[in-house]
């Protein structure tokens, strides 16, 4: 596709990225690193600096300090060279309301024509509409589109160039469950073909399902940047649901080696310091029926809530 510069394995790399609007520090010393081919989730509360960071990556907002490298190219210096390889959805889709979705894509594409003949470009527009499920809407003006349709049109616009890097802000905003599933499948499919994804989202479950790595912003700083698997490693606690909690407590309390119950909520017990298998074996041996036993993992939500400022605090 586009002959963009090679990224030395990095799709996105920032060093000390800082942005002040007047006296307000929107983003402070962010070192964001996204490897090529990775699916990176970008989370954080409202006003944490996510969008400003994304805008700086794409050259819309100019950094006060720090460096941005996109697919190995310097931003904003080499923007014109690198942007053809990047597809983006920033703060919601936008289109000319009096034109059809197809006309909108054709117009955007004509403003900075991609490679190939006119017919090939038209075919790419059709393909992009097809993959987001908008091929059938015909000549209807965007003005009459639903929120979900606009969102899908925005995605199509990002996909027309078959980019190497997709930067998507809230990609499933306004979509119904089927639409969300469809977009997730599409993104995973693109990722399997080698496209790098940088997805910023409030929906932590979405990031959990979609992404392999996650970065969390809080008050302008990148406070977490880690593999989803590492963040979601077992906590060492085992959650057990039993028919008879009293008996279960007694059984586990008699154990010489192994964990003990730290708390119980009705029929659910939390056991610390013992693998699931040992807990289940001891309970079953003692004749206590086990309905469910699972090693506790933290959700991404737990991680994000723990590392970021609670809502309502000064931000």
């Amino acid at each position: 596709m586009s002959a963009a510069p090679s990224g030395d394995g990095w799709a996105v790399r920032t060093q000390g990225l800082t942005k002040r609007f007047g006296t307000v520090a929107a983003v402070t010393d962010v070192d964001l690193e996204v490897r090529e081919g990775e699916r990176y989730g970008f989370c954080g509360p409202n006003g944490s600096g996510k969008t400003t960071t994304v805008r700086m990556l794409l050259g819309l907002v100019l950094p006060t300090r720090g460096r941005v490298e996109l697919l190995g190219a310097d931003v904003p210096g080499d923007l014109a060279r690198v942007l053809p390889s990047v597809g983006a959805l920033v703060e919601g889709p936008a289109a000319y309301g009096h034109l059809s979705g197809r006309a909108n894509l054709a117009l955007l594409d004509a403003a900075a024509p991609g490679p190939g003949s006119r017919r090939e470009r038209r075919a790419r527009v059709e393909e992009a509409l097809e993959v987001v499920g908008l091929a059938g809407v015909g000549r209807r003006a965007v003005r009459g589109y639903s929120l979900g349709m606009r969102q899908r049109l925005g995605l199509a616009a990002a996909l027309v160039r078959r980019p190497r890097l997709l930067v998507l802000d809230e990609p499933t905003n306004g979509l119904d469950p089927q639409g969300i599933r469809r977009v997730h499948d599409l993104l995973l499919d693109l990722s399997a073909q080698g496209t790098t994804l940088l997805v910023s989202s409030h929906l932590l479950t979405e990031v959990e399902q979609l992404c392999t790595r996650v970065g969390v912003m809080d008050r302008g700083r990148l406070v977490v940047s880690d593999d989803v698997a590492a963040l979601r490693a077992p906590t060492g606690r085992v959650l057990v649901a039993v028919d008879d909690p009293t008996a279960a407590r007694a059984v586990l309390g008699r154990r010489v080696v192994g964990g003990h119950v730290v708390e119980g909520l009705g029929e659910r017990l939390v056991v610390v310091g013992s693998p699931v298998a040992d807990v289940v074996r001891d309970l079953v041996t003692a004749g206590v029926a086990v309905q469910e036993a699972v090693a506790e993992r933290r959700t991404l939500e737990d991680v994000v809530l723990e590392r970021t400022t609670a809502v309502g605090e000064d931000r």
Binding site: L58, G59, A80, L83, P84, E91, Y96, L108, A111, A112
Partner: peptide, 14 residues
């Protein structure tokens, strides 16, 4: 105001 400015610049249109 329509939000299309950012998408034009991202095409990229200098």
């Amino acid at each position: 105001a329509a939000g299309t400015l950012r998408y034009l610049l991202l095409r990229p249109v200098g």
